[in-house]
Amino acid sequence: MEIWKRIVVFEMMLSLGLMGCLVNGFGGGGGGGVPQRRCWFPAVYNFGDSNSDTGGRSAALGEVRPPNGETFFGKPSGRYCDGRLVIDFIAENLGLPYLNAYLDSIGTSFRHGANFATAGSSILPGGYSPFFLDIQISQFIQFKKRTIALYNKLADTNQVYKDVLPRPEEFSKSLYTFDIGQNDISHGFQYSNVSQTLQSIPKMMDKFSQALYQLYGEGARNFWIHNTGPIGCLPTSVAYNKDNHNNVDNTGCAATQNRVAQEFNRQLKTRVLQLRAQLPQAVFTVVDMYSAKYAVVSNAGSHGFQDPFSFCCCGKKQMANETGYGDPCSDPSRRISWDGVHYSEAANLILARSVMYGSFSDPPLPVAEACR
């Protein structure tokens, strides 16, 4: 079935509540019928980079411009994509509205969560964005403190605040999602070398663990953590390594970049195992986005995509390694990559349906059941 037709079918099934029909078709395991949902997540709080930024960087550092947003929103939405991100499909799956960016104050409701992710963010400071993970955690702590105080003071008498503020008792019941680390590796490759980038991974894990401890101290108990994707399969990485035939794997991806990503993911899994032992009241679900994304790239044709290393945006041909690359396209649904770094909505849809039902999760639980 063509990509655009699959998207239409998916949206129709979502709107009709036929999620049980999607489980087998989306690789989620389990039998037919609607899956029993053990969890009720009143809100989602997300931390990360451009893979899950729904408007943070756009609000803080300059508007995301057209043609971003053209496929679904019909205009720029703060996302570096032609449409929705994986976090948007997760919100839909949980029956929640799309997350508003914490940094965007215009027409914003935080009743069902907030998004602290900003494009370019990293775990360690000194990367592409000032909003590294420590800052995002600090923003959440301030957000929680101030909203609770405001809710307790005014919610009983002011319906406006009651409609846009999270309930104080719901912070511990909410889902805390993460998609961060890609920029740490990319920045390392750009400004240092492979050895130094590898040596910095334990520091990344220390900072990441510290962030989870802080959130746990604030009452967070349900954590949904994406590992980092195959950075070497991004069209920009492939372009810059196209002449280095010794650094190309069987799929055509840059092997060294992927090996570093895999080492990051190995250490992340080890840290989460430690956290499970140290924080037994919490539920930590690690999602293997690396494998999910690599499967889409390596099987592009079977999903209806064209060359997995071509991209669509952004309005003009891009230059990489002194070569013109990425002709503007009329049909983003035929491309995995939107702009050479970020995935298209069509690819995000496939990724979302791959990971939301537990096939790539440890433990193998759907996101709707990833709670204490």
Rank of each mutant, 00 (worst) to 15 (best):
V296S: 08
F284S: 13
A282K: 11
T236M: 12
D243A: 13
G229L: 08
A282L: 12
C253H: 05
A292M: 11
V260N: 04
T251V: 15
A239D: 04
G232W: 01
N299Q: 09
Y290W: 15
A295E: 12
V286L: 15
S237N: 06
R259V: 05
V238Y: 04
S298L: 03
N241L: 08
A282Y: 03
G232E: 01
P235Y: 01
P235W: 02
D288M: 05
M289V: 11
S291N: 10
D249R: 06
N265D: 09
N246G: 04
M289S: 11
N244Q: 08
L275N: 03
L273N: 14
N246M: 09
H245I: 12
C233Q: 02
P235C: 02
Y290D: 03
A300H: 15
T256V: 15
D288H: 10
A255K: 13
C253T: 02
N244I: 09
G232L: 01
L268Y: 11
Y240F: 12
V286T: 12
G252S: 12
T270P: 00
C253S: 09
T285V: 15
R276G: 11
A255Y: 14
G229H: 02
T256E: 14
V260W: 03
T251H: 06
K293M: 10
V272G: 07
N258V: 05
V297M: 11
A239W: 00
S237I: 01
Q267L: 15
K293N: 07
V272K: 05
N241M: 12
K293L: 09
T251R: 11
A300Y: 15
V286P: 06
T270V: 13
S237D: 05
A277E: 11
V283S: 12
R271I: 14
N258C: 07
N265Q: 08
N250C: 01
N265M: 06
S302H: 07
S298I: 02
V238Q: 09
A239Y: 00
V286Y: 02
G301Y: 11
F284N: 13
G232A: 04
K293I: 15
A295W: 00
C253I: 04
V296C: 08
N258L: 03
L273G: 14
N265P: 06
V238D: 10
Q267I: 14
R266T: 14
R266P: 00
G252F: 03
Q267C: 04
